[in-house]
Nucleic acid binder design. Sequence first.
DNA 1: GTTCTAGAAC
DNA 2: GTTCTAGAAC
Length: 787
Amino acid sequence: MNPDAGGSSSATPPPSASQGAGAEEERGGKPVVVVLVGPPGCGKSTFAEAVVTGSTAGRPWVRICQDTIGNGKAGTKIQCLKAASDALKEGKSVLIDRCNLEREQRADFVKLGGTLHVDVHAVALDLPAKVCISRAVSRKGHEGNLQGGKAALVVNRMLQKKETPLLTEGFSRIMSCNDDGDIKKAVDLYNALGPSDSLPSGIFGQKSKGPVQVGIMKFLKKGDTSSVEKSSGPNITLSESKQGQQNPLPKHEKVEAGITCQMEVEKGLDDKKENEEHAKESDSDNVGSRTLAFPSISTADFQFDLDRASDIIVDTAADFLQKFDNVRLVLVDLSEKSRILSLVKQKASKKSIDSSRFVTFVGDITQLHTKGGLQCSVIANAANWRLKPGGGGVNAAIFNAAGESLQHATKKCADALRPGTSVVVPLPSVSPLHQREGVTHVIHVLGPNMNPMRPDYLKNDYTKGSKILHEAYNSLFENFASIVQSNMGKQNSKSGAEMSASGGTSPNDTKMKREDSHGSERMKKHKLLPPTMTAKQQHECTKANAPNYHDKSTVSSAAPNQAREGDNKKSGVVASKTWGSWAQALYELAMHPDKYKNTDSILETSDEFVVLKDLYPKAKKHVLVISRADGLDSLADVKKEHLPLLRRMHSAGLKWAQKFLEEDASLVFRLGYHSVPSMRQLHLHIISQDFNSTSLKNKKHWNSFTTPFFRDSVDVIEEIEQHGSATSSSDEKVLAMELRCHRCRSAHPNIPKLKSHISTCKSSFPSHLQQKNRLISLSTTMHMDCT
DNA sequence: GTTCTAGAAC
DNA sequence: GTTCTAGAAC
């Protein structure tokens, strides 16, 4: 408290209510800034128009639309700010009709409101992505010229970056509309808003999408005994647990000091009566709902070192159990001889972990209740990155046991996972796993992969691998804790109120809780979901844009990726390469060529590769031979074992070059790979050397085909034969090099001049290219035919 | 004044 | 990815 500040005259007028009111009276109203938040196709403009034209209460409204602000054409944010400022000064309320999905994009409008002492509202049009996409795709004559197939891409990309508006940004009111009904209600609300009326502050209409995570420490952490009864740990006797709440284990789950609970021990539970009794007791003390059963992550198919893995399991479990009382972890493996179980058991006992709250269990994770007598409401799945069933092991077993409903539920929650993250999927009650085993939640976890045959292979880098495995378990346990907390919140509304009240600064509980859940959503977005476009989004994008499997020969859009990589590093997830949304198209095609077989872009399909015309050809003839091997994304992944594949891809490329030469004998082809491809899934370019194409537009396009960035297929094959890998790939710096003719090597100041030059340059190709069949022309193919 | 590019925005 | 535009380059 600075007495000077309090006593000083209003050199800088504080945004006090009285001052604001005085100004309003002068202007005869109380303007407001309404920042619309939503992707293209969400109906922002319709909303704004409806408010502007439908106002029944006399409030003057101005729609500030960035798509039309420049004399009917798209303008800048600055123009919008200026227009908004002018309107507000005239006492008019404004609707900011631009996407405003990211905090930074809307910050200036919030600031403007602050400067002019008017309330700033956010209206988030949170319609389902597919609704926005389909609207954006099908609309005609859009002011911002965003329609058709590209709209899908744009919407998807924008939604990835979406940051839910927060009160802490400076909004006095945030309203979420989740469907057209909500939107109508919001329009009605603003239409009925008189010039001097104001709307209540706070957050309205937000759907709670997941378990609340913020505040969980307060709720479960040791030391906060107000809402959680402390576990008494291993010293409690079984009889004392009759009241249930205190002992995390029911008496039927006989946990030895050795902490391994084997199925044999539980055989007696097959007795129906006892089972019923068990179930009853479990229900009453609810231990099942506080138990997580999990398989060892990454140690099966992903071949993670068992010794290291067991250390990490014990470490993360110990940390977790120290932080949270009243929860139980069960490490499950099928075999009695399981080495990971025995290692974990050993290390856990050395570390003196509470053996009643961390147990190892031999059995089938999908039959813990019926066969093992264990009640575990939450089970973890060692998932694959696409969250798809199959593949064998625990993943296949869980998806099989849970039935289709798990697949559907999973799709609703997430589309893909990055190594080191997990996602909670509430298991529908129709699922056999729910009905039979009492599993209410499955948490999919993706760990690090040390298997060269699987995606995201870490090449035995255990520094990275261990970090990711740590992350994976931490993420799993945190998500588990959030489920427990959410359950307890449901059971005990008093505790929930305590949690909110203990938030302290919030004027009302509802607001606080909503903000919390909101924070949790953000956390979920940043931490749990993959930073790149989700598989579902990709799918929808592909559907909307098919065929969308063009090759992107530039890296011009790498910036957002890099930013996201930064985020990953922060959260401990280290990715070798982040593939953007469009970068997935070839992968999608390679995995499911049948889906696209009716497009004329696909020239040939085999078990090993797909040949297709590049959607944005950089020359008269430009096709791609795409490998269909999962996990083989670029030259960096190529090993000796892939040589036969590379040779066959080369042959396929040659065949197509020859076919094109039959049509146009003047062409010359080069076959090669980009050192650093923009799209995942290894693909070989077959490109004619005329570079006569309107799609070749910039320096990066040009340099990606005419500098050492382009790696001739023959050289790649030779290099792998000799060294086992493609070592001499050049980096992306060469893409910024000066523009030189690929024939005479003359330099040119810009793309148009260069293109003009190459259209007439008749120089022979550099001698280096004329060797080893790097160039394919009629003469070379004739020669090849002879030999 | 016109052309071109880089970067923002979609 | 494409479109658009401000400002650099000519």
